[in-house]
């Protein structure tokens, strides 16, 4: 089934809770994405289910533990596991985060922020290079959801991502919910962020729900992936794909999982927007 790249369609994060529903009939989902680390056991049900997904849909492997944003050396054993998984399933896309998750041998199980400086840029570039060389494939690197920022940062995040891509040849995964969440958390404009984002490098888009609270420092948005994508995020998505044309677009839902039809309805909503963007793009090209 591997066709080289994800289709320009809407996909869903695959959750084992949805397997029965998904496998019961052909689903109108363009692709599925899984978190790589959940499939790093040797065998059993997780692999039998992923094999089914692989055989029937395009697949995206999304890592959360490679520690790209750390200034410590990459975990070679983990990179080898990721390589094995890529070899076993031949996913159309493989992605990771501009974040760190381990330090001093301890794994934090969270995507943690880094300052954006010339020094950290060198670390990230070296890590993406090493990962791409090890995996023998191009990675997409995702913009993080941030709750804090480092005062020592000297490079805007969009420039930092573009520099990583320029130096390593990697692509970018644009998480529009993360853009919204980070902008809100820093009293900044998500649209301004997107205006400066190197959209030509985007290989996939992520969309998810978040929740908003009031906190000491003003609005606090938490990237909880436990609710529908809000309208403001979808509006940003529309503006992005109006410029780029359709892109593979994933709906992520990790907490408070709904039944599969609810998630599928979200995917369909995104698919309709992709179709509209495709139509207006075609019109623009014809004009």
């Amino acid at each position: 089934m591997p066709s080289g790249q994800l289709p320009l369609r809407a996909g869903a994060g695959f959750k084992p809770e949805h397997f029965a529903a998904i496998s019961a009939a052909r689903q109108p989902a363009g692709f599925f994405e899984v978190h790589a680390e959940n499939y790093m056991g040797a065998g059993g049900a997780p692999h039998s289910q992923l094999k089914f997904i692989r055989e029937n849909y395009p697949l995206s492997l999304h890592g959360v533990g490679l520690n790209i944003g750390s200034c410590e050396p990459l975990d070679r054993a983990h990179l080898a596991r990721l390589k094995d998984l890529c070899g076993r399933y031949q996913p159309e896309s493989c992605s990771e985060h501009l974040a760190w998750s381990s330090s001093g041998g301890i794994y934090f199980n969270d995507l943690l922020p880094l300052p954006y400086t010339e020094a950290t840029l060198r670390c990230v570039v070296a890590h993406v290079d090493e990962a791409q060389n090890g995996l023998r494939r191009r990675l997409l690197i995702e913009n993080p959801a941030a709750y804090l920022r480092f005062e020592e940062s000297t490079i805007p995040e969009t420039e930092f991502l573009e520099a990583v891509a320029r130096a390593t040849g990697c692509g970018l995964l644009l998480d529009i919910n993360n853009v919204f969440v980070s902008a809100r958390n820093h009293a900044a404009s998500p649209q301004a962020y997107l205006d400066s984002f190197p959209l030509h490098l985007v290989g996939e888009i992520h969309l998810a729900g978040h929740f908003a609270a009031e906190a000491d420092g003003g609005a606090l948005c938490v990237d909880a992936h436990g609710s529908p994508v809000i309208e403001a995020v979808l509006a940003l998505f529309d503006r992005v794909i109006a410029r780029t044309g359709p892109l593979p677009a994933l709906v992520e839902w990790d907490n408070d999982l709904p039944q599969w039809p609810v998630l599928l309805a979200e995917v369909n909503k995104v698919q309709e927007r992709l179709c509209r963007a495709a139509a207006s793009h075609k019109d623009a090209a014809a004009a």
């Binding site: 804090l148 958390n185 820093h186 009293a187 906190a215 000491d216 420092g217 003003g218 606090l220």
Partner: peptide, 11 residues
């Protein structure tokens, strides 16, 4: 830091 001076602990 957070956008204002008191938010960092909570964030």
């Amino acid at each position: 830091s957070a956008p204002n001076s008191t938010g960092a602990p909570e964030r």
